[in-house]
């Protein structure tokens, strides 16, 4: 019950400088990441501008050429899954591991060869 009785707050220890550090520090973290946000928000436009200029020089129709550049993530994921499944189906590498594990064959009247041979139907 008295576990935290020894915790004593000392409001006098807090100076304006400390509060300023906290506020400025938090603001600067925001500022740094805000700069990243602004830059990377504009980056695709800058890259597309460069690409459009290049295509214009080459005389290619801009829209047709740039359209293929923006494949949605879902389409990419579907293509990747299809390729993965296809490659998994190829079976080009067999494990080639031989085992001597006993394969249990539980015969029943329905699948036993001997049963079928010996208990054939008589007319």
């Amino acid at each position: 019950m008295n576990l935290f009785l020894w915790i004593q707050l000392n409001p006098d220890a807090l100076k304006a400088d400390h509060l300023m550090l906290a506020v400025i520090g938090y603001s600067v973290v925001f500022l740094a990441l805000l700069l990243l946000y602004v830059f990377f928000r504009q980056l695709p436009k800058l890259l597309a501008f460069n690409l459009r200029r290049k295509l214009r020089k080459e005389g290619e129709p801009e829209k047709a050429a740039t359209a293929g550049n923006a494949v949605p993530g879902e389409v990419n994921a579907a293509i990747a899954t299809a390729i993965f499944l296809y490659l998994n189906e190829l079976h080009d590498h067999e494990t080639a591991v031989l085992t001597i594990t006993k394969a249990a064959k539980s015969y029943s009247p329905w699948n036993s060869k001997i049963y079928n041979v010996t208990h054939f139907r008589r007319f």
Partner: peptide, 8 residues
């Protein structure tokens, strides 16, 4: 940071 300062 502020809390730790308050605790000494």
């Amino acid at each position: 940071y502020i809390g730790a300062l308050l605790l000494g």
